[in-house]
Design a binder for these strands. Structure first.
Lengths: 144, 144
DNA sequence: CCTTGACTTAAAGTTGACTTTAAGTCGTAA
DNA sequence: TTACGACTTAAAGTCAACTTTAAGTCAAGG
């Protein structure tokens, strides 16, 4: 299959396929002239990648799930951890959904006067109002 | 309260507070010299922002939820839509969690041979294997 | 008076996952 | 032969939500 064939069948744009190849997430079996030739297996691989992405894994984490030979190499611990993480995420999302629905339905003069709503806002703010991303490594500071 | 006081109490870094002010998400009530002075109300506002973020709203969407006077202006439709969206997200996440747990537990020689797993991978791949972000507006192309 | 430390600004940098662009290489159809 | 369309590359651009940096302002303390 050539790249546009894979793109068509998988829904993954050619640019992304090239990008994934660069990252080592997929491999082409060879070239015909310049052009990459893919084995149909790549479709399954892409589905697996989609699973990982949907589960919130980064591309790097996904890459680590494939042995150098290309066969999936499952890190059960990582998987189980991610599953737990998702569980937490789901719980939080459920609370947020309830908060939104309540806000959309409740007719208290000010939403902040509604104890139900305040509680949910509390959950959202809990555990640090502001934090989502982490730095990798700050590196050394120059001594100015 | 000065900015570091707000930072301390809310857990939101000063840099973020300045950034939020720039974006119109929070307002300082004035200045003492150069320094911003905040009303304690800002803490509640930040909690509301945290709710929005946790629910997956963008900062711009959140900004739209506050009337120019600063009072929350609820767009019930948007809220309800977001709640539905979260519901969908939760369903998908639940499926992914199950997939991960299964992959972590199942001992089929190759995971792809397990029908249960294949089904879940199918769900992940469904609706377009690869798509997450949308462009806003492509803008005009120069006629080279 | 000078230093320190907490604040200020505008501008640039970061991250992850891509996409877009510019410039080039092919095979093939007219 | 030339043009076309589909591919190629490397490099730069995009996006959101911040963070970091550089350079500056000030009040208070020694």
């Amino acid at each position: 299959m050539d790249i546009s064939e894979v793109a068509k069948q998988s829904g993954v744009p050619a640019s992304t396929l090239r990008f994934y190849e660069e990252k080592g997430l997929v491999t082409s079996v060879g070239r015909q002239g310049l052009r990459r030739v893919f084995s149909p297996d790549v479709l399954e691989r892409l589905a697996l990648i989609a699973l990982g992405r949907a589960a919130g894994l980064s591309l790097d984490e996904i890459a680590r799930m494939f042995a150098p030979d290309g066969k999936p190499r499952i890190d059960r611990q990582l998987l189980a951890d991610k599953a737990d993480e998702i569980d937490g995420k789901i719980r939080k999302l459920a609370a947020m959904r309830d908060g939104l629905r309540h806000a959309a339905a409740c007719s208290a003069p000010s939403h902040m006067e509604c104890p139900k709503f305040r509680r949910i806002v509390g959950i959202a703010a809990a555990g640090g109002i502001g934090r989502r991303r982490q730095k990798k490594s700050p590196g050394k500071k120059r001594s100015r």
